[in-house]
Amino acid sequence: MYTLLIALGALVALTIIFGAVLGFASVKFKVEADPLVEQIDNLLPQTQCGQCGYPGCKPYAEAIANGDDINKCPPGGEATIKQLADLMGVDAKPLDSAHGEEDVKKVAFIREDECIGCTKCIQACPVDAIMGASKVMHTVIIDECTGCDLCVEPCPVDCIDMVPLNDTNWKWDTLAIPVKNVN
């Protein structure tokens, strides 16, 4: 009987001690984290294309924070899904193809002599990457364009192309030139 009491007492004492230590640690070493939505938004590619079904990345970030699936962003692709999975502590899953497929990076290019200056693309662009005014030629600021594709549809004369971005970072992987014979 006596031993039982000792054991019980020890257990209770341990519980109290560890609880105190843990509580102290959680207060003392608290990590000030960004709000979740901010963290999610930081991982999203900010293409603002709306393919996820939300009008921009921030709204999608809010939706994810509220429990939406993490696999709806085609521009981010598998890499973003993986990061989101890590952040949210859920399993990564393949991209939901209902929202589109991952593609190479592109930017919009306006064939300027065909542009009629209708300003429709300007209104469509989520990041104000198109310059121009009514009835004069428009052009895309390549550095600002996120490649979201939203300006292509509204163009009444179809003069906007999405051209693959010329990737300057060579990744040590492909043959740039064919091999030639010697002798």
């Binding site: 040590w172 992987d173 492909t174 043959l175 091999v179 030639k180 014979n181 010697v182 002798n183």
Partner: peptide, 11 residues
Amino acid sequence: MKRLTNLFVSS
């Protein structure tokens, strides 16, 4: 005719 190697190899 002998060819150059056409494998890309990193150093």
